[in-house]
Design a protein around this nucleic acid. Structure first.
Lengths: 206, 206
DNA sequence: ACCTGAACACCGTTCAAGT
DNA sequence: ACCTGAACACCGTTCAAGT
């Protein structure tokens, strides 16, 4: 009659993006165990089989989510760099707090990112590259602090891994509820997010 | 005829323990996504429905596994205490290394322990108590180091959480492969397990 | 008490068939 | 090219029925 779309739309062209968006939502709402391709298909309004046109596998869709997660992480660390551009120690702390915040904003995605997802070969290199880009941002902050003479002269990789491990641990304990249970009542969890990394920082500073 | 067991054994009485043991094995072999009650039942040799006599739910079986994991963690920290009984700083490092080793011995179980498993109310308090017992062991080491005048006088809970977070992070990065990829080639991963915690330790020592 | 088979609603995945 | 329904082997869970 008028401009209404045909009832049978065989090509809507945005299926992949729509599926990933719906997956990011459903993941946080229902947990990783209850994320199914069939539910996603229903939400997006296609048959339960349509996703296989864009993902070889459920695990490939999950790998795409993980990649998105690492890209968000990189962006968050970049944003943190603008807060205290002249103080490299504060810069490292800001990046750590940003890491923890990203993790608690999407806890299930964060879990998926480090959950031993056995990604297939093709996607694996892509996902690992995204993870490496986030790692490199931390690495560069440490390297900067060393050339400025603010940080100790330990092996940069080891220092970066220690910093990563600490904020990762804080994020995980935060998300699994063990930190909130334990945090001294007067200190808000947000305060712990900066205090705990600062304890490691003391060991890294000259 | 002779002493052979009856073909229909309705009461074999060890079903719960057998299921948990088989679950611990299957979990590491096939990953968390492929652990099913039906497979466990087949392995143990009962009908797919028998587990419901001992577990209200699949999630209750998983909660039992998590509890076992925390008990192993406590035992490992205890064992670490016997290595350097007179040096509290080494004691803390030994406990940290033990934590990382336990995690890498049963990576999937470790993941399950911190994987946001939504445990039902009844089991929840039991699981949390087991987690608290492991936490308390770390707490006591920190407290000891403070009374001995070896550690700084920060809030003990915060120091304990920082130590927990760091070793937890190292364990997770280890298990997800990000640490092994990054570790300086000359340093064995086992060396990183002690080096990284020692960097935090520097920030905690007086 | 403990175990069983049948049944239900849900999965992931494949495939021949439609436009 | 893109989408569909039917079909398969697997799940968790429930329930009436067996000893």
């Amino acid at each position: 009659m008028n401009t209404q779309m045909s009832k049978l739309k065989y090509h809507h062209g945005q299926l992949k993006e729509k599926l990933l968006g719906a997956a990011l939502d459903l993941l946080e709402q229902e947990g990783i165990a209850n994320l199914s391709l069939r539910k996603l298909s229903k939400i997006v309004g296609v048959s339960h089989n349509a996703p296989y046109r864009h993902f070889s596998d459920k695990s490939e869709l999950l790998a795409c989510l993980v990649q998105i997660g690492f890209e968000r992480l990189s962006a968050a660390i970049d944003a943190a760099g603008r807060e205290n551009p002249d103080d490299v120690a504060q810069y490292l702390l800001d990046a750590g707090v940003a890491y923890i915040q990203i993790a608690s904003r999407s806890p299930v995605l964060f879990q998926l990112m480090f959950g031993g997802l056995t990604v297939k070969e093709a996607k694996f290199t892509e996902v690992k590259a995204a993870a490496n880009r986030a790692y490199d941002k931390l690495f560069k902050i440490i390297a900067l602090g060393k050339t400025e003479g603010v940080f100790k002269t330990y092996d940069t990789t080891s220092m970066t891994l220690a910093a990563w491990a600490l904020v990762h641990g804080v994020a995980t304990l935060h998300n699994s509820g063990y930190l909130n249970d334990r945090a001294p009542s007067k200190k808000a969890p947000a305060e712990m997010n900066r205090l705990l990394p600062s304890m490691l920082l003391k060991g890294l500073l000259k």
